[in-house]
């Protein structure tokens, strides 16, 4: 089934790209195969302007208020938040582990930087995920070409700046092939 592509409304501020919000929650005791992952992930909606973004975001639960094993995903419209998608196949992601209580602020700063095109890496950004877990939370940003070191370095430096992370924060880059 073909979905309608989001378009900016009259008087709204268009974004460089359209994006889609997704939500997933792990069902305890179930295997995490690709099929069940795809079944557990739900589209919240797509947007094409700053105002449309706020209409979704303002009604979403903040990551710090989520319980259990849940994730919010923000990906460019047309890219599924999974490694199997063509846009992600040769890609990788920066991962930042956060102590509890920081995820809401970091997630908001991260998505505002993505929507505002603060990363300056052309078409490279695919999307971002905030993963709420029991002990800590994880934020990640995915890009298309894991082997492009200039791009991954620029993403890392922009992340440090926009998230205002403590200097000792550990950032880890994982690439698709190593993981699967």
């Amino acid at each position: 089934t073909k979905r309608k592509v989001a378009v900016p409304g009259a008087g709204e501020h268009p974004l460089q790209y359209n994006y889609t919000f997704w939500y997933s929650r792990r069902t305890p005791g179930r295997p995490t195969s690709t099929q069940s992952y795809e079944q557990n992930i739900k589209q919240i909606g797509s947007f094409a302007s700053v105002e449309q973004f706020w209409r979704f975001y303002s009604h979403m639960i903040r990551p710090d208020d989520l319980t259990g094993h849940s994730d919010f995903h923000l990906f460019k419209e047309g890219i599924k938040p999974m490694w199997e998608d063509d846009a992600n196949k040769s890609g990788g992601k920066w991962i930042i582990r956060l102590r509890k209580g920081l995820a809401s602020r970091c997630w908001e700063n991260l998505i505002l930087a993505i929507l505002g095109e603060q990363f300056m890496v052309g078409e490279e950004i695919c999307g971002a995920v905030v993963s709420v877990r029991f002990q800590e939370d994880i934020i990640s940003i995915w890009n298309k070409t894991a082997s492009d070191q200039a791009t991954t370095a620029r993403i890392r430096d922009t992340l440090r700046r926009v998230l205002n992370l403590p200097p000792n924060t550990i950032m880890e880059y994982k690439n698709t092939h190593r993981q699967h």
Binding site: G9, G11, E12, H13, P14, L15, Q16, V50, E51, W54, R55, S58, N109, L112, A113, L115, G116, E117, Q118, V162
Partner: peptide, 21 residues
Amino acid sequence: GTRIIYDRKFLLECRSSPLAR
């Protein structure tokens, strides 16, 4: 081509627009 760039401050200001509700 031209890129549409917004800083954080501008994006946060748009939140209070009637179009954002």
